[in-house]
Write a protein that binds this DNA or RNA. Structure first.
Lengths: 199, 199
DNA sequence: CGAATTATATACCGATCGGTATAAAAAAAT
DNA sequence: ATTTTTTTATACCGATCGGTATATAATTCG
């Protein structure tokens, strides 16, 4: 009951996500948000709590809609395909024509004031979680003799994430998708494509 | 003549550089700066012009004092040594115990408001310049048959810079130097260490 | 000793920051 | 039709933003 909401929450959140993605947490003002989302401040606070709450919900949406390739990639049977799908998935997202360049998880709050320290910490944990998940996947691969000789699973995970974070900076600096694909090709050169083998 | 300055300009600039490095351009307030540098606002404006001018001078100092390894590395006779010195030089700077983690050229203004757009643009150009200089060096290496077979000089340069930018994010996320060194080892695996050859 | 010059300290500027109080508007419940 | 509930619009809040006007303090020059 009561007066019905005049805007679509999901649509507004999508806009907020894109703004934070493009301008960062501190670089996006409430005026940017309310004007972009087409709602007033009381409406924003009524639905999303405050700026920090809105960012966290936007991040959640980002993970759900833009980073879904990541956990899908972990399901690939061969570790090399996991790595390659993750690298190309990041590059695709970072250079999509719709939406900002780079990565919300990095653009959001890399270096910031104390006021954004909590958001910064949250994004760091976010990155660590992804790296840990990939490390676990590579641990499984190690047991399956599915890693190149002498490679530590968690070092390999950090390596893959470092490349992905590097391409995020490259994308934010104007690099296009083919350029990032060539970087990825080079990054995977050391990892031999396994010969087709019948089970 | 006139009243003598009561602070050391170089020392103040060093402090400003570290503040911008740690908190970014927009995340660092004039209060942060004046308190850190131990001077008042009129003194800051008298010597450095304004916040933007101060940042640019801090960036200049950063390039001169922290990035000097880069152009030194370009002088290495073998391209692989150029690449390795650059990668380890970045990792060293990004994880130095004195000074903030990561890279001023990235932390300074990756994603920001319109107010910092000029600084952001300047940092992007900064990155492009480094990549271009490295690309030129690899072009020379190509002529000298000093690159691995089938590698394009400018793709190789982008690859090296992507790794370095990735380690900057890793350092800002808490990774230590040995961890980054292991990433670098992996990134250079594809590039065979040339057999010692007498000229 | 002034006079001129430069740097300092203090107080202040308009604009914008994130956030909210108040009240009108629009619906459901009685 | 009135009450209740929720959302909207407007106006406002103190704090902080980058930047500056004013005056005093400290030096050199004449």
């Amino acid at each position: 009951m009561g007066r019905p909401r005049e805007f679509d929450v999901d649509e507004a959140l999508e806009t907020a996500m894109e703004l934070f993605w493009r301008k960062g947490y501190e670089g996006t003002s409430l005026t940017d948000l309310t004007e972009g989302m087409g709602i007033t401040k009381p409406s924003l606070y009524g639905v999303f709590g405050n700026k920090e709450g809105l960012f966290l919900k936007a991040l959640e949406r980002y993970e759900r809609t833009k980073m879904n390739f990541f956990h899908e990639a972990l399901k690939e049977p061969k570790a090399r395909d996991v790595a390659e799908r993750i690298l190309r998935g990041f590059a695709d997202s970072q250079t999509a024509e719709t939406g900002p360049s780079g990565c919300l998880g990095i653009n959001g709050a890399l270096a910031c004031s104390e006021a954004a320290a909590e958001i910064q910490k949250c994004l760091i944990e976010n990155r660590h979680r992804g790296e840990r998940d990939l490390g676990k996947r590579f641990e499984r691969a190690a047991k399956e003799d599915d890693l190149p000789l002498g490679q530590e699973p968690y070092d390999l995970a950090r390596y893959i994430m470092t490349i992905s974070q590097g391409t995020a900076i490259q994308a934010a600096s104007g690099a296009d998708r083919p350029a990032l694909y060539r970087v990825i090709d080079m990054a995977l050169q050391f990892w031999p494509v396994p010969v087709a083998q019948n089970s």
